[in-house]
Design a binder for these strands. Structure first.
Lengths: 343, 343
DNA sequence: CTGAAAGCGCTTACAG
DNA sequence: CTGAAAGCGCTTACAG
């Protein structure tokens, strides 16, 4: 005997508890959900059995009759500090509810659809999609199928809620800061989306367009120069380096994201005549505050965005159907990586 | 009519597809799973209906009769680069399988149990627990319930597999490096676990013990000094600062983790007489390579660890029952943050 | 208060 | 090749 005891990972079920406590499955179910109509004596007995057998109900089975009490989040970059802040904010909004959060990680520059569908297949009660790489119509359709909040892309929908940072404002305060210091030759680092996506309102596109607009309005059309990289340290390093080698000599670089700014820093360090280059970013990630980095950047208040996204999602799960569109202000954080031009 | 069409988020079911394609549910199920015994004509018809209705089977319902094809990962720090590398490695191992990965994030210094149980409740087919903050017996019991691999803690079990970095070796090469540069007054920054946990073999404990052992064996008992912080930039900044204010003046600091090293850097920058302080870390995170940081550190090969963890987990899911214990070598990465003592 | 029964959406033997 | 039926582990009306 006992030969196969640990072999099969058989789960304890509600039936086991019912047998052990000598009651019906329905009774166990009621105790589980604190439903009305159970005697104290029965409740005690059932709870004892639950503890003794270390029973935990399967969410799947539960989900067949209703909710799974699960919120799914889709992200595409696990090291991104802004996303980490958003997740912390979401946690704070969800903490006192019975909902659990699970995260699906989409491929870095790959489509968000597989990750979103994977959550949908697992029957989450709601989805938070962070800057998803997906078509507007596809997202619309998804919003029809499951309560959804989208964070980052300036895209309003009738089927899901949207919460974005005020990217125009963020870029404006940053550009005003740089121009105020006396910079005119300001380059911008942007993120290249894969060719198959045509979603015009992703944050980096807005930032790039605003950069162009502000340069033009300042009469600096000729100084506009864009380094096309990715919002990631290494690609930004490579592309910045390539641009510097090709002769680009701005007095300031405004990177569309902190990681891209870090990459530009690394590249600039390799050119003696770029010692006086000002560099700024976007996101106010943790390392931006490091004294050796001390990056001027734009804080998007990710924690608060995540918290509000969580609140919106809970409302939707509870039945709200009208769409919300929220734009949150940003804050300029001035540090020592930006200073007046030295040439 | 049509008043409630978008109101209820009703899902398309296998029944809907069967009706639409004029076949039985069993037939749809077979097409779904590419099972034998379906005529080409029927397959075509069913697939057409599936596409038209955009039908996706519920994993929950599927899971009731078998697997959910889901791997659950538990992490406690979303911004940690080492963990990000592990996740990428896991993805590469799981990429060509039907398994999907979902992540549950445990509270930063809180117990891992709720996150692990949440995955278990959702009936994942296997769990990868990264440096879980949990009792050994509790983990043992969990391993009996579900295929599990634990990464990080030097803890061998009969119910789950373990994969760890060779922390002793990592500390040894780092200490040898520092001592080789001529350092004798070497301080160590460690991580403080919450009081309720008593798992002696977490990585930072091993690192601290090795540091002590090597110092003693070098006859440097009197120079041993430990800064107790957390493996996180800000706490490390605060505690390092406090130690410096109290008069601690090492020539080198070996932090048990890169983020802790970054915090120490920030603190040291505030003391003029610490300009010649060497600082090193552990993990080889992305920012360690930044030219302004250029941190000497230990690479744990997180990607490879994650890949092997994924392979172990798949084996377990396929039925292996004997436990594996794998220890992976580390590599010293020397950069410019360490140099001979200046005093 | 308590429990028998139906049902959620799938898959799996099993007949035909 | 095709489908009717049972069953997975829960919850939910509904009787008693």
């Amino acid at each position: 005997m006992a030969v196969d005891e640990s072999q099969e990972h058989r789960r304890t079920t509600i039936e086991d508890v019912a047998t052990h406590a000598q009651v019906s499955r329905a009774a166990v179910s009621k105790v589980l959900r604190n439903a009305y109509g159970v005697s104290d004596e029965m409740r005690l007995r059932v709870n004892a059995s639950i503890d003794e057998l270390r029973y935990r109900p399967r969410i799947s089975a539960r989900g067949m009759r209703g909710r799974t009490f699960t919120i799914g989040v889709v992200i595409n970059d696990i090291t991104n500090n802004f996303i980490a802040d958003v997740l912390l904010g979401l946690s704070s909004a969800v903490a006192d509810t019975p909902f659990q959060t699970i995260v699906a990680i989409a491929e870095r520059s790959g489509p968000a659809a597989p990750a979103i569908e994977s959550l949908y297949d697992r029957q989450v009660d709601g989805i938070l999609a962070i800057s998803p790489l997906a078509d507007a119509e596809w997202l619309d359709d998804m919003g029809r199928r499951v309560p959804m909040v989208q964070l980052g892309v300036h895209l309003s929908s009738t089927t899901f809620d949207t919460i974005v940072g005020d990217d125009s404002q963020g870029v404006e305060v940053m550009m005003r800061h740089l121009m105020g210091l006396g910079h005119r030759r300001i380059a911008h680092i942007t993120h290249l989306d894969p060719a198959w996506i045509s979603l015009p309102d992703r944050p980096h596109i807005i930032r790039q367009n605003e950069y162009r607009r502000i340069m033009r309005e300042a009469g600096l059309d000729d100084e506009i120069s864009i380094i096309t990289a990715r919002f990631e340290e290494n690609t930004s390093y490579i592309e910045s380096r390539r641009a510097f080698e090709a002769g680009l000599r701005p007095t300031a670089i405004f990177a569309g994201n902190d990681d891209a700014a870090f990459g530009a820093m690394r590249a600039a360090a390799e050119f003696d005549d770029l010692a006086g280059l000002s560099i700024s970013g976007y996101d106010d990630s943790h390392m931006a505050a490091n004294p050796r980095i001390s990056l001027t950047t734009v804080n998007q208040h990710g924690h608060e965005m995540g918290r509000r996204a969580g609140a919106l999602l809970l409302e939707r799960i509870e039945g709200r159907r009208e769409s919300r569109y929220i734009e949150m202000p940003t804050t300029l954080v001035v540090r020592s990586s930006t200073f007046p031009p030295t040439t």
